[in-house]
């Protein structure tokens, strides 16, 4: 118990330092958000398990390099079958493997991305749900808005917390997999390929960061109860996936290549990732018939429409959370 003495032994000392620029307060919000989230053992465990796709991808790169060295021999059949099962693409027709290494690696990344989306879903729900909701619940907003923090810097800080975790779960493991793959399989001559692939993978990770961050912050600004945010997050992530499956099964494919194929945000992200990684064109260039990879890639949805849906959703989410935070900032003194 602290002693509360009315007679202070020492007097208030003025501080002689200088404050930094007010625009740069948002990194403090990021560091605090990330630090607080990492205090939870479950979050740390999720981050650790997100390394599983990395190991898988590295293993696949190694198998591709093995296949390159034994192609045309008896051993190659088993490796073709293994890769076909992992990538869900029958690549047995590709004999000049070294030439088409890039597209095989890109296909591997698409497969990894689909797995990683599962981790992103859970980690963002865990980390992002309480980012604004907990501040509302604890009535902590006066602390932010009595300091030189604006609604924009506040939101930017909170969004970067989500983006940091998405990067930890998705982007960084992908880049590690790329590095490991280069060391294990490619060798120095593949650096050029890897650099281009690294840029595309980073862009695809950035799309997930933007969309997931905006969505979860919008939900988190609606209520002060983190549980409702989690329910809302699951609803906007899972339900459209199920709806999309039903639509795809019940309607002819040519109908679902347009707006009707863009209902699920997760599928839209996969469509854009596939477009960014240029997989369909790459696989077609190998001479493989389309029916061999169409099943793995799913039916073709127009990427522009998927981008419009994601863009509109993200813009609406950012606008909504910004509006809510501006409202909270204006009532912060009397919350």
């Amino acid at each position: 118990m602290t002693t509360a003495s009315a007679d202070r032994a020492h007097q208030y000392q003025r501080w002689q330092g200088t404050l930094g620029k007010a625009h740069w307060t948002w990194p403090a919000i990021v560091v605090n958000g990330v630090t607080l989230s990492l205090k939870h053992a479950k979050t740390r465990t999720m981050l650790l398990t997100s390394g599983v796709p990395v190991l898988t991808a590295s293993g696949v790169f190694y198998v591709i390099s093995l296949l390159e060295s034994v192609v045309g021999t008896e051993q190659a059949k088993g490796l073709y079958d293994f890769l076909g099962a992992i990538l869900r693409i029958d690549i047995s027709g590709i004999t000049r493997l070294a030439e088409f290494r890039d597209v095989l690696w890109r296909s591997t990344f698409l497969m990894v991305t689909k797995f990683q989306m599962f981790w992103v879903l859970i980690v963002v729900a865990r980390v992002g749900a309480g980012l604004i909701a907990n501040d509302l619940k604890a009535r902590a907003l006066p602390i932010y808005f009595s300091k030189p923090v604006t609604p924009t810097t506040y939101l930017l800080g909170k969004w970067t917390v989500v983006a940091s975790f998405v990067a930890m779960v998705m982007l960084i493991p992908s880049l590690i997999a790329l590095g490991l793959g280069t060391v294990l399989a490619g060798g120095p001559e593949t650096w050029g390929q890897v650099l281009s692939l690294g840029v595309d993978v980073s862009l695809s990770g950035l799309i997930v960061c933007v969309v997931a961050g905006a969505a979860v912050l919008a939900l988190s600004s609606i209520t002060s109860d983190q549980r409702y945010v989690t329910v809302g997050w699951v609803a906007i992530c899972i339900l459209p996936i199920l709806a999309q499956r039903i639509i795809n099964e019940s309607l002819p494919p040519e109908v679902t290549t347009g707006w009707l194929g863009c209902i699920s945000l997760r599928d839209d992200i996969v469509v854009l990732t596939e477009r960014l990684l240029r997989i369909r064109q790459g696989l077609a260039a190998t001479g493989l018939p389309a029916e061999r990879f169409n099943q793995a890639l799913g039916h073709a949805v127009e990427p522009a429409k998927a981008a419009v849906v994601l863009g509109a959703f993200t813009a609406a989410a950012i606008f909504m959370s910004w509006r809510r935070v501006v409202r909270f900032s204006r009532t912060a003194a009397t919350v």
Binding site: A22, N32, I143, Y144, K147
Partner: peptide, 9 residues
């Protein structure tokens, strides 16, 4: 944290 939000190093 409050100090950091105020712009302190």
């Amino acid at each position: 944290y409050a100090g950091r939000l105020a712009g302190m190093s």
